[in-house]
Design a protein around this nucleic acid. Sequence first.
DNA 1: TAATACATTATATTTATTCTAAACTGTTGA
DNA 2: TCAACAGTTTAGAATAAATATAATGTATTA
Lengths: 142, 142
Amino acid sequence: MAYAVQYIDKLRKSGLRPTKQRIKICEVLFDTDKTFHFTIKELVKIIENQANIKVSLATVYNTVHAFIKKGYLKEIPLNASQSYYDTNVTHHHHFFDEEENRLIDIHQDDVDEVNIKKTIPGKKIKSVEVIAKIVSDNQSQK
Amino acid sequence: MAYAVQYIDKLRKSGLRPTKQRIKICEVLFDTDKTFHFTIKELVKIIENQANIKVSLATVYNTVHAFIKKGYLKEIPLNASQSYYDTNVTHHHHFFDEEENRLIDIHQDDVDEVNIKKTIPGKKIKSVEVIAKIVSDNQSQK
DNA sequence: TAATACATTATATTTATTCTAAACTGTTGA
DNA sequence: TCAACAGTTTAGAATAAATATAATGTATTA
């Protein structure tokens, strides 16, 4: 309950009324120093395991999307059957291990700033994401 | 028919027998200087409009996936409901215009080489993709 | 050219996501 | 405080992309 006030604020700023379910979602997402990656299904499972509150898929989808729109969460661009989300909304990038279906953060400091020289008339860049796919390194040859 | 021999070769190297349908798919994908982006549905539509050959979704999926595995096509990492593919398999990046659901190439020359300092034990980098989301630039303030 | 192994197809299945509509709850103002 | 309203939750239905299935057809080979 420590952060309830913040969560109510976050929800209101996202245009959502603070309800039991939504506050529970906030607790799972933001009640820790550590950021993490998740899918909707995983988030539902975490909530089920942590609380005696029942939350429907629809509510979770709605809330997550509202937070993304507001910038409190980020969707990670990937070619996976499910969408992956990130509680870390600071500027950083990702490794994606397709063999293990695992995402790993790459800190901003570990990549030089991506500087794109090309521009598109009437458009501005909203975000720049680097996705580096990694695979098992079965001994470099020789 | 000009490139039939190449296509048969591409198919065989991908572990596929050259059939009418698959050669038609090759013609649509590779019978031009220009590279392009496509979804499976779009590809099926192009084939239907160009040929009197009927090709099922399943065949198109199978063939496209075999080509991706072999490196003749690339899948573009995105959060869209459908998968987007690219006939340009050279090293380059993309703008994604979410408002118009449109992909635009960014040539290698228009981005500095992305140099990732972090490494993951036992893993090597297979590919590095930059996705820059763009939105309408409704006048920069002031 | 016959036998075999692989392909094609229509259709069914699976699964993530979105939609719907009925029941419920937070909010507002009297 | 409470009634009325607007927004919310939910189970289940709907949608749609992608994959699987199995019967029929075709390329390959010896």
